[in-house]
Amino acid sequence: MEKFQLKMKVNGRTVTVAVEPGLRLLDVLRDVLHLTGTKEGCGEGECGACSVILDGELVDSCLVLAPQAHGKEVVTIEGISREGELDALQRAFLTAGAVQCGYCTPGMILAAKALLSRNPNPGRQEIARGISGNLCRCTGYAKIVKAVELAAAELQQKEGAAGV
């Protein structure tokens, strides 16, 4: 089969790779680029463990074929901390105790990030809706919702401070 020349931006860096056109974005990230922070849980877009942000939108990377990501910008869990410093959401997940087995965590953090970029000050119900495509079997979601609230508050405060 003829390979597809996939060019996309991943976590701020442009990458060009030749891949089978039937390959999923998830496989490109994990197997070709070795970004294994993106997890596979179900392979049918139900669990959200493979969530990444594609041109600002949260997607299940198991449902995106490699050519569909061509020319686009992908953010994975590896791309949200800066120079080794954790993102506000990552820190909030630690503070709130929102991590147990951790397998849903990367996707959950990206879902929360996509939510906060649309709605910087979500209520609990909006947070629950924002992460409802991401399954967690350990936490019962309570501390995940709390973590998103914490991060939102911190980001709001920073923005307020920056505005002054």
């Binding site: 049918e44 877009g45 139900e46 629950a128 019962g140 309570a142």
Partner: peptide
């Protein structure tokens, strides 16, 4: 045998605990 047919609670199914 899949998470689309075997449903577990999502964040929207959870009561306040």
């Amino acid at each position: 045998p899949g998470l689309s047919s075997y449903l577990i609670p999502t964040a929207l199914d959870m009561p306040e605990v």
